[in-house]
Computed example of a mutant assay.
Amino acid sequence: MTGHPDTPDVPPTRWSLAEPGTHGYSSRFAELVAQGEDVDGEARLADALTQRGATILDAGAGMGRVTAGLRARGHTVTGIEPDRSLVAQAEATYPGLGLLPLDILETTPEVLEAHGRPTAYALVVAVGNVFILLAEGTEQRALRTLRDLLAPGGRMLIGFHLSAGPAGSRTYAPEEFVADATAAGLTVDLRAGSYELHPANEEYAVWLLSRDDSPS
């Protein structure tokens, strides 16, 4: 999830503006975790996309379930989440998780280095509707920011609803997302309809992206 309250060049996100209608998110997932339910679909796919012990960035980490799931699989994971209430929920659900309270737009190599975290990643994960809850008009900027954090050969895993998204979210048509990714210097390697890689559909999109380092 996304939304930073007090950084001037980071505008309020759709998540933060719709927050009264989204309070059930963290409690619902906390209950699922407590009940032992499977909440690891995204983490399983991310794990399959990387080598053992990979360095991974979980952008818009929410209450931390993907960060926790990937750490449990042996990866070095940095989770960022600007919503302080979700950071607190993540710590309560997964003690010691240590999410950084950062918006995607302010997550530069310099900022990560200042926090003692890696500055380049084999995989960047932004799942759970992060990209349809960004601040209006910042999608390309967010994609560029994350692209700049990819290590050579690194990839990006993004997922969001194409219809019936959460409160306050936008509709992000596949062709528009592809155009934004291309403008941000990324190549779309795969579009699927779920984290189990079902065929592309009109309800949910899972994207695998890589850097386009061809000469402009």
Rank of each mutant, 00 (worst) to 15 (best):
L208S: 04
E139W: 08
H4M: 11
G168I: 03
R117C: 11
V77A: 00
S169I: 07
F160K: 05
D148Q: 13
A205R: 03
P5A: 12
V178T: 15
T76Y: 09
E110R: 11
A54Y: 02
F131H: 12
T13G: 15
S85L: 12
P109D: 03
Q140T: 15
M63E: 14
T182E: 14
D213A: 13
V178P: 04
F131E: 00
A46C: 00
R191S: 09
R147C: 04
L197V: 06
S163E: 14
D40P: 06
E136F: 07
T67E: 07
R170M: 15
S85A: 14
G41N: 10
L102A: 02
A184T: 10
L197Q: 13
F177C: 02
E196Y: 01
F29W: 15
I104Q: 05
R117Q: 13
L143K: 07
L97S: 04
G193C: 05
R147M: 04
A68V: 04
R155L: 09
P152D: 11
A54P: 07
Y121I: 00
P95C: 05
E106K: 04
E19L: 15
L99N: 03
A120N: 02
Y25V: 09
T50W: 01
A126P: 03
I80D: 01
L162G: 12
Q51H: 13
Y195P: 00
N201P: 02
L17V: 11
A34R: 13
A34D: 12
L112A: 05
G168C: 03
P82I: 08
G165E: 00
P166E: 02
V178S: 13
P109L: 00
G79N: 02
S16P: 01
L149K: 02
P82G: 08
G154T: 06
I104Y: 07
G159V: 03
E196N: 07
